[in-house]
Nucleic acid binder design. Structure first.
Lengths: 110, 110
DNA sequence: CGAATGTTTGCAAGTTTAGCCAAATGGGCA
DNA sequence: TGCCCATTTGGCTAAACTTGCAAACATTCG
């Protein structure tokens, strides 16, 4: 794989990596189904230090998954692309597939 | 976020994290568009140590994205779910969106 | 069996990431 | 201006990830 090709995959991996964390996944999911939220609201939902949540949001913003907008003293974040829900659907497929295979191992012979 | 909810997102994040690496993304992409490949073929395409590629494949297998099958001396890997291409499509959307915004910053005023 | 080929695993070093506390910044308001 | 609230950033430590080399395993072939 030449440097150019690697760079292409690296750019894509960065975006995926931004979602590869439980808290960030939760944040994306929450923004996807409930619309824009300010950092304080999200922090309360997550239940972690506000600085931690802020950093997670900064990571998502850095790769272009979310965008922020200041409203007075608060900063609101919202999804920038809709298709992230496809991620969830596919992940569900994998989990479901895993479950089916695990059950097969329990019930029948290898 | 209670422990149960966190565990749910954690399980999903693990699957996403498996794809959050340039080499593994390449491997998934290759398997998606060219079908099953053995470790040696993939190793040559990637251009890294075979032990490294083997480990990456093991990670993908560990979360259920790929499965392996021995054929004589070689081990062939193949995708276990089709929808991973949705990942790529969405990532492209994000990249495209980023590009549009960058151009807007260049051309017009903030 | 012994050699050759293909793959996985143990190990060690270097790099990255997550989380918290404290300090700094930005905006609204008396 | 000075204070308060919301958010971000710096600094630090512990944990996780990545990688190549070498050794161990697996399988085929002579």
């Amino acid at each position: 794989m030449d440097a150019n090709t690697f760079a292409k995959y690296e750019a894509r991996a960065k975006i995926i990596k931004a979602m590869a964390h439980p808290t960030r996944l939760f944040l994306v999911d929450e923004l996807a189904r409930s619309g824009p939220r300010c950092v304080c609201e999200l922090t309360e939902m997550v239940g972690a230090d506000i600085s931690t949540v802020s950093r997670h949001l900064a990571i998502l913003k850095g790769v272009g998954i979310v965008e922020d907008q200041r409203r007075g003293a608060q900063v609101y974040y919202r999804l920038r692309v809709q298709c992230v829900l496809d991620f969830f659907n596919c992940v569900e497929s994998v989990l479901k597939c895993n479950l089916v295979d695990q059950r097969r191992l329990l019930v029948s012979e290898p």
